Amino acid sequence: MKIDPSFIWTAFVSLLSAIPTTLMITAVSVAAGFMIGLIVALIRMHRIPVLSQIASAYVTFIRGTPMLTHLLLIYFGLPLIIDALSAQFHWGFRSASIPMITFAFISFSITAGAYMSEVIRSGLLAVDRGQMEAAQALGMTSWQALRRIVFPQALAVSLPNLSNSVIGMLHGSTLAFTVSVVDINAKAQIVASTNWKFFEAYLAAAVIFWGLTLFIERITALLEKRINLYNRGGVA
């Protein structure tokens, strides 16, 4: 096999147009997943009847099944539900009008929520319970104590694992091509299909993913440095 270095650069340039799609999928799934994970973590920690059991089952099921399976279940199952409800209530809306990327958003958010709930829960459990009691003794409500005292410390503890979750979702976004979303991986396949130089195209994709991963790691390192500076009583 003869490698074509010039095509690696050609593929690299062509793949740049797909970066916004990949980043958008990652950003939406991480943001929505964080909110889902926070709610699930709080429900499980406070052992709310019924809801805590549902939350535990959700985390166990999602973490115990492949990410691709979640995507396919949403892709094939959600249209059936929407169309059935539309027919039942005589809505004008049909699943065919849903953009393909929406299925990726929903599926990856659900997946990220389960994994992030464990990260957030471990961070919250790492904060001394006495700090919550001290804050309440000073007259703070439970929500104020969580927002001002517990959450900042839990975030500092969870930051490395949250960074890993973001990187995991970035890499997992490559599955979006299975529902016809043109991300970096799908773009590489399209570019390579013109002359069957798949190795060069996927090598260019790997370089882009590597660069994005290094960027996320760099941002995380800066955040950790800033948080540690405040923890030592320094000034940013």
Rank of each mutant, 00 (worst) to 15 (best):
L73H: 02
L162A: 04
A236T: 06
G64W: 09
F61P: 06
F151E: 02
N185S: 09
Q131S: 15
V191Y: 00
H46K: 08
R218Q: 09
W196T: 14
Q88R: 12
E224N: 13
T102G: 02
W9H: 05
F151G: 02
V50E: 01
S173F: 05
S173L: 08
Y230M: 10
M45Q: 15
R94W: 09
H46L: 11
L42V: 14
S122L: 05
I62D: 00
L229T: 14
P49Q: 05
L155F: 15
V127R: 07
F7G: 05
K2N: 13
R47K: 14
I81S: 04
L71A: 07
A112I: 01
D128A: 14
L212M: 13
A55S: 13
F7P: 01
Q144C: 04
I101N: 05
A186K: 08
Y75K: 04
A96N: 08
P79T: 08
Y115N: 06
P152V: 04
W210K: 12
S107R: 01
Q88G: 03
F89E: 11
R121N: 13
A145I: 10
T26D: 01
R121I: 08
A188K: 02
V179S: 07
S14R: 10
G33M: 05
I227V: 15
V13T: 11
G123Q: 08
G77Q: 12
K2M: 06
T21Q: 12
V50I: 15
Q53R: 07
A41S: 13
F198L: 09
V40R: 00
L15H: 07
M67A: 07
L162E: 02
A186N: 15
V40E: 01
R121D: 13
L71Y: 03
Q53V: 07
T22Q: 06
I8C: 09
T178I: 14
A236D: 08
I19C: 06
T174V: 14
I48Y: 05
W143H: 08
S163Q: 08
Y75H: 04
M1A: 10
Y58Q: 02
G33V: 03
S173W: 05
L85E: 13
E217Q: 10
Y115V: 02
W9T: 12
S122E: 04
Y115T: 11
S122I: 02
A55T: 03
T102M: 13
G168H: 03
S86V: 11
Q88A: 15
V235D: 06
L73A: 11
I184D: 00
A201K: 04
I184L: 11
Q88S: 14
K187M: 15
I39D: 02
A114H: 02
T102E: 09
G139F: 10
G92H: 06
R47T: 12
S29L: 00
A32E: 01
Q88Y: 10
A31K: 09
V182S: 13
F103E: 00
L203F: 15
